[in-house]
Each structure stands twice: as structure tokens, then as C-alpha cells.
Write a protein that binds this DNA or RNA. Sequence first.
DNA 1: TTGAAAATGGAGTTCATTATCATTTAGCTA
DNA 2: TAGCTAAATGATAATGAACTCCATTTTCAA
Lengths: 139, 139
Amino acid sequence: MVEEFQKVLESKGLKSTQQRHFIAETFFKTNTHVSLDELLKKVKRKTPNIGYATVFRTMKLLTETGLAMERQFGDGQTRFENLHQDGHHDHLICIKCAKIVEFQNQMIEDLQAETAKNFGFKVVRHKLELYGYCADCNS
Amino acid sequence: MVEEFQKVLESKGLKSTQQRHFIAETFFKTNTHVSLDELLKKVKRKTPNIGYATVFRTMKLLTETGLAMERQFGDGQTRFENLHQDGHHDHLICIKCAKIVEFQNQMIEDLQAETAKNFGFKVVRHKLELYGYCADCNS
DNA sequence: TTGAAAATGGAGTTCATTATCATTTAGCTA
DNA sequence: TAGCTAAATGATAATGAACTCCATTTTCAA
């Protein structure tokens, strides 16, 4: 997945730097929805001199090239999802304990595509978030 | 719909003020996704002495009681959706011209409920946003 | 190797959201 | 209906995430 990022950089005529590599690598290793601050902390553990701005810009780059996706879960922080590792998935979010469960349903995806087509839209990506009470909080 | 808000206030032991009435009324009349600033402007046209804080708190109240819903479309502004007037709907968003089309598909809703049930979740509300290119921008 | 263009990083700016607090108001009670 | 008390208001300040700036450093093609 870092290799893919490498290719993207090359194809866009952007420079391949140690920082970009390390940020991307750290992000791709993360399997949760990290915020910028969290990612910065992780990155700084090994390379303390990397700045916020570089992490910010690298994540923007990853988002633009489709390797990451910005998400808002309502806690005021933009979180990033690793699209490459896990493939696409949707979210069940508990509004009591904030637990996030990921799921995937092909039938829903198909219906979405069909609906969009009826409106003349060509869908590139989507977000589906179900908010409610999880099994533990619903008793 | 203002009557429903009235009932909510009563049941919560909150006071029924002119400001709350007028803000709710203005919001329920609006059929787009208004931001706080936009709503404040609308409200100030008729009652210029209403403050930002009151609009903010009233919308928070409407959100908590399920009459409104916060939404993030990626423009950095929280927008509010009128749940009462239009009923629930989902969104098709053009990533080129920012056009937003609303739609509703009962089959998708049913599948969502079913999926959630499989995970032991009881869904209260959801967001479904399809991002892509609209008919005009896809040619 | 070198120089021009791009990238970095620390700090600063912007702007939406939330908190503060003195003043006003709603609505219960006598 | 006048008075009282707690809640609500509204102007402004504080907060914090998102984004920018610019002096310095680094990449990489010639």
C-alpha cells in the first residue's frame, strides 16, 4: 500500500520524502479511525521532529488520491479511514457508548448504485452510518 | 410542528419563550439544509435583537429532541435538517458542482434495519450520502 | 555536484463552536 | 396581579480544529 502511494507521488510529479513515507506507513498500519492529532502522536513516537503541517498535508494528499477518506462521526474531529487495507465498509455507531462496528452489505450497495443511476448520478464513494444503541447499551 | 416543540418544552420543564418559538418556526419553514449563520440571518430579519447564542441553543434543543438533525457535508459548517416536515431522506451529492439531491428508498431502509439487527443494534437514525457526479457534470 | 523547485515544520491565523455572565423574562405562588 | 426565583437571553470571550505562512531544508534532474 505504501508502494501504491509511491506510484501516486510519481504520477503527480511530487517528491518522495521520508516524512511522507513514514506518515503513510503509520497510517496504513492503523486499523482504527484516527484523527490528525492521534496520527501525529503515533508518528512522533519514532520521528519526533515531524510537524503537524506535514501530517495534515500528507493526509490531504492520501484523501485526494483515494487511499484515505475523511469521516465525521460527530465528535468534532475529522477522522481518517484506511480505504486500501480494509476495502469499503459502513458503520454502526452506538450513541451511548460510542462503539463503532463496521459492516458490509452488497445488497445495500447495489440498491444505492441503482438509485443513483435513476437520478443520473455516477457514484464515486458513499457514507452510510447507522446511529443507535448497541447490544450492551440496549438492555 | 411548532406545537410538537411546545410539547417537548413542557415535558422537559423548559420555558416557552418568544425567541424559541420564532426560531423553531423559522427553522421549520426552511426547506433547505441551513447552517446556524444562515438561520440567524433569517431570524434577524424580523427580530433583529435575537442573539447567536439563542439560535445555537435552540437548535441544540431541537436536535436533542429529534426534531432536527445535524449534518456535515464537508464544507466546514454544520447544517440542520428538518426531520419533521419532510420526513427522512438521504442525499446524492455532486462532488463537482455541489448539487444536493434528496431521495428515499424503502428497500435500503429495510436492509439497514435488518443488518443492524444482526449486530444487536437498535437503530435510531442514520445518514446515507452518495458522492459522485450528477447528470450535468458527468458528460 | 549543484541549483531550482518542492517540501518541511514551527508558529500563527482563521473561523465555527461552545462557555461565561450580567441582565431580562417566564411562570408559579400568595 | 404583584413579587419572586430560577431559567433564558444575548453580547462577547474562550476554545480548539483546520488551515496557512515563510524561513529553512531537502529532493532530484541536469
